[in-house]
Design a protein around this nucleic acid. Structure first.
Length: 576
DNA sequence: GCCGTTTTCGGCCCGACTGTTTTCAGTCG
């Protein structure tokens, strides 16, 4: 059984226990175990088989969860999980998605009014049966009715590029408010997550009411769901949630740290503070004890320094290893940065489904600071995009030779191809053609519904072809619209490592493929990553920054990303 | 359920807002 499956089982345990109103620390323990196992660079199954190893050596896994791992691996199932599934009505979870309804209220509703569906709940509200329950009143009943609409209409998550667009609109709107001293966006948006479930806006101002009044005038605003002295929540656009917090300047750093999260990171940070005799909240860092002396809060640096930590990049604040790094080596590893990229190794031109000539793409890339690029148009199988057959491809490469002569050392264009891995497992172009390329990336576009075995075999077969250098968008997922195809990604990683191949992090915000978890795993196996734009236009080249953010979230270092290498270094690697 | 430079038991991060309450529980982030 794969780690991801074990992690998923514990995640579900946590969800179900939470819905049963169980001890929240027990819930957290399962959730933590799920994360640790999902991030583990080696297989739980193998550790269990090794008599010298012990799962309980891993932080976050104790006797109970180690035993459950064994049961899962040996039997493929977990009796406790099966039991919880049987005993937990699905409507409970559905009800907790209604704003204002948590586990406690959901349990009361389900048990006392025998609610089996959201439709039952709607009827109970309309017949005023909810307001008769202890702890419920007319307002709560009305809130639930309205919440049912929101739960059904709410846009679940925004992709990072969509979130950026909303943030830009909010920033522009709020700029007109003169009472704002500082405006910063926090939360998962600041951490650079591939999708975000809400937007957290943090403002420094002495006039909270004026700031809130301004937000209430936002053109996309649908409803204000809460408003106090320092905090306001509203829904904008398609009922997407935006939260605003107003703080004083002296608390800005503490508030930014707190609202950036993640929850897990903050739990660890605060736990560390406790051990040091400190306590930390969104207003500052304080000494525990009678006089509660305040020792930090104006800047994030100050807050982390007070905890004897360096400033931690938001992308790493996921409660994984970021604090441990300071314990072990006293500093964080040097993450890849925006300015490190000197190449872009996946892009299309007007020869297939792109919009620009080779020269226009090269010139635009040069202006963005790239030293070399690869032109990788589609191969013939992608007929919809007018994919290249051998004859047209060889003609394109002649063009590239001529262009390189003209460009001199301004930028180098590699003769590349995005070669389809056909349904049969064959590559779309003959070996003697591929042999003449500088750079071959192989990818799956067709037959995505094939069996796990077949698709894995296709990709592993491509990795074993000596002319293939890299696999593009290895799982084929499209965020929010298409799940990854069925593929044994572990087998892909093993084949990539054995054949010394490169895997792509496709930086298009719709793809971001590989995912951060997969990147961590690939990096641990020593597989080099290339971050590519897959640009079909000049505008499309700008997405590389999303790839950098994702790579940073996975903790990738500069040298692990091939586009930071000099061209000569890449060429040596490819000749291996 | 996990864990131990105060602990093998008793902790486990912390505060704002709301509604239903007469001092607080539930929800949320």
């Amino acid at each position: 059984m794969k780690n991801s499956e074990i992690a998923h089982a514990f995640e579900e345990m946590a969800d179900l226990l939470e819905l049963r109103g169980e001890n929240p620390f027990r819930v957290r323990a399962y959730r933590q175990a799920a994360r640790v196992i999902a991030d583990l660079p080696e297989s739980v199954e193998e550790i269990l088989q090794d008599a010298d190893r012990d799962l309980t050596q891993i932080a976050g896994i104790g006797e109970t969860i180690a035993e459950k791992c064994r049961t899962l691996v040996e039997t493929g199932t977990l009796p406790q999980l099966e039991k919880l599934r049987r005993e937990t009505p699905p409507v409970l979870r559905q009800m907790t998605r209604i704003p204002g309804v948590g586990v406690k209220k959901a349990l009361v509703l389900q048990q006392q009014l025998d609610i089996q569906s959201l439709e039952d709940l709607r009827r109970a509200c309309q017949e005023h049966r909810v307001r008769q329950l202890k702890g419920f009143g007319a307002k709560t009943e009305a809130e639930i009715l309205r919440g049912l609409e929101i739960a059904q209409a709410a846009q679940q998550r925004l992709r990072i590029d969509q979130a950026e667009e909303l943030v830009a609109r909010l920033r522009e709107h709020m700029a007109a408010c003169r009472e704002i001293q500082t405006l910063e966006f926090a939360g998962s948006y600041r951490r650079g997550k591939e999708t975000v479930g809400d937007i957290d806006m943090l403002v420094v101002s002495d006039h909270g009411a004026a700031v809130m009044d301004r937000l209430a005038q936002f053109p996309g605003l649908v409803v204000v769901t809460a408003r106090g002295d320092t905090k306001m929540s509203c829904r904008v656009d398609d009922h997407f949630q935006v939260d605003l917090r107003v703080v004083a300047a002296e608390s800005f750093g503490a508030a930014l740290q707190y609202f950036t999260g993640s929850k897990e990171h903050n739990v660890q940070v605060r736990g560390r503070a406790r051990k040091m005799g400190l306590t930390i909240n969104e207003y500052g860092v304080y000494r525990l004890g009678e006089n509660q002396q305040r020792i930090a809060g104006a800047t994030e640096e100050e807050v982390y320094t007070a905890l004897e930590l360096g400033w931690i990049p938001p992308e790493l604040r996921e409660g994984r290893k970021e604090l441990q790094w300071y314990e072990d080596v006293d500093h964080l590893p040097p993450l890849i940065e925006d300015g490190d990229l000197v190449a872009d190794l996946h892009m299309h031109t007007s020869a297939t489904d792109g919009t620009e000539t080779i020269e226009a793409m090269a010139e635009a890339a040069r202006k963005l600071g790239r030293r070399y690029i690869a032109i990788t148009d589609h191969s013939q199988r992608v007929s919809m995009a007018h994919g290249l057959d051998a004859e047209r491809l060889l003609a394109q490469w002649e063009q590239i030779d001529a262009l390189n002569n003209k460009l001199g050392n301004r930028i180098t264009v590699l003769k590349g191809i995005e070669c389809d891995i056909l349904e049969s497992g064959q590559l779309d172009l003959a070996d003697d053609v591929l042999a003449q390329a500088d750079w071959v990336i192989a990818s799956v576009h067709y037959g995505q519904k094939q069996s796990r075995e077949k698709i894995t075999q296709r990709i592993v077969g491509a990795l074993e072809n000596p002319h293939v250098d890299a696999i593009a968008h290895p799982t084929g997922r499209l965020l929010g619209s298409r799940p990854p195809y069925e593929v044994d990604i572990e087998a892909v990683f093993v084949a990539a490592a054995e054949n010394k191949k490169i895997l792509e992090l496709n930086a298009n915000p719709r793809r971001l493929d590989l995912s951060e978890e997969h990147l961590m795993r690939a990096a641990a196996m020593g597989i080099p990553i290339c971050i590519n734009s897959d640009a079909h236009s000049i505008e499309g080249m700008h997405v590389l920054r999303y790839g950098i953010i994702q790579a940073r979230r996975a903790g990738l270092l500069r040298d692990q990303v091939v586009n930071t290498w000099k061209l000569a270094t890449l060429r040596r690697w490819l000749q291996r």
